[in-house]
């Protein structure tokens, strides 16, 4: 016996999830109140920021609030453990980071960013596909928010329970 009614319910609910997911925009649940690092901040100022807050990644902005890069815990750890860096890390670029004295010299330039009008589903797809844990949200070049994996999980979970 095939449970046609059950199948129809399932198809209806899947469709409605997909539709709902693609109607939810990142701008509605991104974090807007951001802790940012200025591109001219010194290493000491950056370390203070990492000491004071406990985020994994901080966006780096210029004076016009344009996103110019990111600094994450890995970079900080690398700088703090410079004397233990394995030879594989002895590249030109790392050497430039090790000797850097401001945010713009140590940051990862050109971070992947998304638009605030990106949908929840597309963002979740990108997180899974490209193994990225967080995105900076940029509108007209300016940083307007951030979204990370737990935020996405929370929203998808809420959505799953809502139909």
């Amino acid at each position: 016996m095939v449970d046609h009614d059950g199948d129809e319910d399932r198809i209806r609910s899947e469709r409605s999830f997909a539709e709902m997911c693609s109607e939810m925009f990142i701008k509605d649940f991104m974090t807007k109140d951001l802790v940012t690092i200025s591109e001219n901040d010194s290493i000491d100022q950056i370390l203070e920021t990492f000491d004071k807050y406990h985020f994994h990644t901080y966006p780096v902005v210029n004076e016009d609030n344009v996103l110019v890069g990111t600094i994450d815990q890995n970079i900080i750890l690398k700088i703090l453990l410079v004397h233990r860096a394995p030879r594989i890390e002895h590249t030109h670029l790392n050497a430039v980071v090790f000797q850097g004295d401001t945010a713009k010299t140590i940051m990862i330039p050109h971070p992947v960013s998304i638009s605030p009008n990106e949908t929840l589903c597309d963002t979740a797809d990108m997180i899974l596909k490209h193994k990225i844990d967080r995105f900076c949200i940029v509108e007209d070049g300016k940083l307007v928010g951030m979204i990370c994996k737990p935020d996405i999980i929370k929203e998808v979970y809420k959505l799953r329970g809502s139909y």
Partner: peptide
């Protein structure tokens, strides 16, 4: 450059004028 980065780090010379 990779060959001498270790020495520059160990001797604290990476950020020096010649190191840079």
């Amino acid at each position: 450059i990779g060959v001498v980065v270790r020495t520059l780090i160990d001797m604290d010379y990476l950020s020096s004028k010649p190191g840079s």
